[in-house]
Amino acid sequence: MNTEPEGKLEELLRDAGAEWRASQPSPELNFTPHQEGKVVRGRRWLVPVGAMASVLAVATVAASFVNLNREGVERTPVTASSGEAYPAEWILPADAGSGRRVRGAGTLLRSGDGRLMLCSFARTTLPQQNGETMCGGIGVQVAGAAAESFIASSGEAGGAASIIGVYRDGVVHLVSATADRTPAPTNPTAPEMPCRPPRDGWRPGYGIESAAAPDAINELRRWVESRSATYTDVWERQVDDAGQVKNIFVVGTTGDVKAAQIEIAAHYPGNLCMYQAKHSASDLQEIANQIREAFPARADVSADPVANRVAVTALVLDPVAISVLGRFGSDALTIRQPLLLPADK
């Protein structure tokens, strides 16, 4: 567990940011979801974190959660779109010591330990776990009369809010907090299939007898997961073909696709889409672990097998964060909009 006080953590990050800015040009990286890039097999994803070397990873405890926003649906994250330069408006300048004026949107709530928090979204534990509401994704402590007033009007469980404040020593001192009435997004478009259907098309259902499907699916997942250094995680794509539902499992390989297709077909005879992947499941997990170690409790990081990337939502995208993330290569990451953005003066 990280034993550094928040003030010390901010000091380390601030010093590292100052050093980086002194030696580097203004950062403008290109993180685009579909940018082409070369993958070096067997590469070790090591992140030199310099002044942050003393910051330890925070252990997380798994629990059963239900993800919520105010309509009960998690928001679709904003990302840099294909072909765009890295959004300059997301970059937060290094702290000069007096704090940084920021804006953000999320769920403003009071956590179980009494702190007021701005979170990417709210999570509530199951009733048998006391039904406690807490931060999901990434969160930051907030303070000030505006925060207390918002909670007083919305309840301890909080609500969707847009905020403006000053970010200093790990806390956002709010200037204003207003209810966010942005409509919940519609369901996202289903991902494109990374391979073509077989000559005779996909078979109905899973492409195997219904009674045999559960065991066959479990065997597919077990077999692929045991070879994570070569294969991606399995994901499922459902298509509606003239009213007939067809379920296809998708697996990527960093090796030979045709050989992998033959190899997996011996374990799973159902509908299967094999494609050439840049990163294996182990590659993505290693990248995710390295980023978590560099930013304990300051970024929400997860492997995204559908995009074959690691998705990162940072608390802030300051020079230190950009420097560290830039070492992984833009073809490995999907950078989502950070929780806090620079605010106009």
Rank of each mutant, 00 (worst) to 15 (best):
A157P: 00
N67Y: 11
P269M: 04
G155C: 08
A299Y: 07
V78R: 07
P338K: 08
A16Q: 15
G207H: 04
G99F: 09
S82K: 11
W45L: 04
C195A: 11
G243E: 08
L325T: 01
N67E: 14
V316E: 13
S81C: 02
L12A: 11
P342H: 07
P191V: 10
A343Q: 00
A80V: 14
P269I: 07
S176Y: 02
F65P: 01
E286C: 02
A190V: 04
R181Q: 12
E89H: 14
G136F: 06
Q244S: 10
Q290F: 03
E209T: 02
C195K: 00
D180A: 05
L220V: 06
E71T: 13
D169H: 09
L108F: 12
Q276F: 02
V58Y: 09
A265I: 02
A281C: 02
N271E: 10
G7T: 05
S153N: 13
K8N: 15
F328W: 06
V316R: 13
D304T: 00
P188S: 08
R199L: 12
G144P: 00
D256W: 04
S210L: 06
L29C: 02
N2P: 03
V47K: 09
L339D: 02
G42T: 08
L68K: 11
I322A: 05
T32K: 04
W20N: 10
K345E: 13
V55D: 00
D200V: 03
G201M: 05
L174H: 11
I291V: 14
P27C: 08
E148C: 02
L333Q: 11
G114E: 09
E286W: 01
D240F: 14
L341R: 06
N69K: 12
T76Y: 15
A143W: 02
Q35F: 04
D240Q: 11
E236A: 01
A332L: 04
S98Y: 12
G136W: 13
E28C: 07
E11R: 14
N67F: 12
I164E: 13
P25H: 12
A51M: 10
A216I: 00
T182H: 02
D344M: 05
R199N: 07
E6W: 14
P77E: 10
E192H: 12
Q238E: 15
R222E: 15
W235P: 03
T32D: 07
S98G: 15
L333Y: 06
T133F: 13
P342I: 05
V140T: 09
G201Q: 07
V324K: 15
A213W: 06
F249K: 00
E293I: 13
G137Y: 03
F328S: 01
T60E: 09
E4W: 15
A213F: 01
I151N: 00
H34S: 10
T133V: 15
T186N: 10
I217A: 04
V58P: 01
A277P: 02
E89Y: 11
L174I: 05
T313E: 14
S323P: 00
Q35W: 04
G207R: 00
P198H: 10
N130E: 10
M117F: 05
E89L: 12
A260K: 06
D169R: 12
L284G: 05
A212Q: 08
A145C: 01
P319A: 09
E19V: 15
D180Y: 09
S54M: 14
G114C: 08
V39L: 03
N187H: 04
P185G: 10
E263G: 03
A22S: 14
